[in-house]
Amino acid sequence: MSVLPAAPPAASVERFSPVGEVALLVRRMGAMCLVELQKLRHDRTELVTRTVQPALWLAVFGTTFSRIHAIPTGSTPYLDFLAPGILAQSALFIAIFYGIQVIWERDAGVLAKLLVTPTPRTALVTAKAFAAGIRALVQAVVVVVIALLLGVGFTANPFKLLGAAAVVVLGSAFFCCLSITLAGVVLSRDRLMGIGQAITMPLFFASNALYPVDLMPGWLQVINKVNPLSYEVDALRGLLIGTPARLGLDAVVLVVAAAVMISVASALLPRLARG
């Protein structure tokens, strides 16, 4: 038998330091993102099945509406206008699934095991949020390739592409934590599936993903204003297609929304683990 790692000497009380905490957070995010990529490597079918829907939206809905000019998008072809919206949508659908995953992890004992590692809850939730972002990003690359094949004119500017990647990760982090928060409230997988289905489509339709804000009725414009998905889409459009966008505002809203949601989800995680 090989030599096992020996137990460390008697416990010493760790000193709290802000730098140490940030380093820990970064390490945990790295560990969870790596696991996410490893899972994707073992099972690529999900990557493929999750491509079907955005591909249909772009190929069928996008090209048809482009041709009949039903939605006025100025000088931008409708397909170009739509592509960032579909990108955000596919990220949303992936992220919303994470609450269900966390409930499953609780039932399977995985969550308990993670909580008995020296990882603060916030780090665990942040790590999950960014893992969702990484997964969404891999999916986004596939969607971008499809859009390019359909003739969408995306930017080739590497800085703008990097910016778009950051936006996808932030948006996914928000929706992942929204989903974990809902999981912490309802505690059961069946109820969460119901709620997940009930909110994802409205989030999508009450956003600027499919049509310009000016076309919306007044009440929908109000919802659109508080819907983080709209800020995600606005930023993606500005960066990838070059339409006028309030990038500064979008970035602030996405960062703040993600940070708030991470805190709320972290606060609810113990309740979820106990439930």
């Binding site: 010493s12 009380v13 899972k39 399977a108």
Partner: peptide
């Protein structure tokens, strides 16, 4: 610090089947 000292295996089979 307590968590650092513990190794824990819960009652359910909890390894990640997809890894």
């Amino acid at each position: 610090q307590v968590r650092r000292l513990l190794g824990y295996v819960p009652q359910q089979l909890s390894a990640d089947a997809s890894l």
